[in-house]
Design a protein around this nucleic acid. Structure first.
Lengths: 202, 202
DNA sequence: GTAATTACTGACTCACGGGTCAGTAATTAT
DNA sequence: ATAATTACTGACCCGTGAGTCAGTAATTAC
């Protein structure tokens, strides 16, 4: 028969389904997304969904974990191996990293965690440990490095690495709520970096 | 009969119901909250809910609108009538205002708008016009006032009033997702103000 | 007091969507 | 080819919760 109605693709299904689910959740949020709809997007039947994920909630967890950015590990590696001065590193690689966050999947994950996080403390822990703590830790370590090198002075910022992330967070939330209203997120982030550097430079 | 089973209180019901609904939404979010539960909290039957609000969605809108902080108008009035220098005003009334936001109902509304906003563009507009635009406008106006007075110099910050709100936003989101993990939001906000002032003082 | 009014109740309906499973057809083994 | 295996389908089940409404009792009018 020339037209098999479907192919067996056990290997690829999970990925394809989580990808489809991520797209759907991004558009409608977790609750408003129907399992049937994810199935359609992934090109499978509703029944198959439940062969790969026991429940909708389990699918949800798989989706969130699937977008844990490994880029953060990249960034940490870069910090450790860079030969740039602290300031140049901040104005270069770190700034680029920060600028792309508002448009990245991280924004969606933030939305999902705000909506559904309270019902999934384990997921929140997971994200905190693997993304937030790492990111905060990297920034802290980096600032301390700058102090050791004599480029930066001691200041409150060593204990408040969140100040680097504040404009990123605002940009993300702004984008989530006020999608269409303009905001120059790049300039916002740049200006914050300017201020921070002015504040800690030795 | 000494024990009437209920009292008729047409006047107070709407308020009582929206208050109960706000509390419930704050705890569980919109979708996970059952109309029946709000009814119980408000001490009325489920049926009565529908005499005051045609649908659950309409109740939702009423709730969000009910917490549109009039405090923002207060703040604007204060700006216009203050005799403090620009810096003193920022370090005083404005700082206090900012510090109390993360623990205020605004945080809840942010959560609700992130979760449900995409399905209620009119509500988003309403909130933007009556809270965000006003707040942003007030800060902008105030900074410009400082420039006119010669206290501040021209800078990118005039066009980026969101820099004032960035640490507030981060504090709010942090509180929503990582409820229990400590963050010194007051210090975060204070330090941002310090930096901003250092950056724009003439 | 009694009647008229209406705020309020709670048992009901019904659509919706998560989850199931007997059957089917693609694949693999023989 | 044929049988054995199993990835996959889609019609079905059933709990849940939004929304209804006929009836009830508190209030008001007389």
């Amino acid at each position: 028969m020339p037209k098999p109605r479907y192919q067996r693709r056990k290997q690829d299904r999970p990925q394809e389904i989580t990808q489809a689910a991520f797209a759907a959740f991004a558009e409608k949020g977790y609750t408003a997304t129907r399992v049937e709809e994810v199935a359609q997007r992934a090109g499978v039947s509703k029944g198959l969904m439940y062969l790969y994920f026991k429940t909708k909630e389990e699918l949800f967890k798989a989706v969130v974990k699937s977008v844990v950015i490994r880029r953060i590990d990249q960034l940490i590696d870069t910090i450790e191996s860079t030969e740039l001065s602290s300031e140049d590193f901040i104005r270069g690689p770190l700034l680029s990293f920060m600028k792309q966050l508002p448009g990245s999947p991280v924004a969606i994950v933030i939305r999902l965690l705000i909506s559904e996080g309270p019902r999934h403390p384990d997921l929140v822990d997971y994200y905190y440990d693997n993304v937030v703590a790492k990111g905060i830790g990297a920034i802290t370590k980096f600032v301390e490095q700058g102090v050791e090198r004599g480029e930066f002075r001691q200041s409150a910022i060593t204990e408040l690495p969140q100040l680097f992330l504040a404009p990123v967070m605002l940009s993300i939330i702004w984008g989530l709520i006020f999608k269409d209203r303009p905001l120059d997120t790049d300039k916002l982030i740049e200006t914050q970096i300017d201020m921070l550097l002015a504040h800690i430079k030795a």
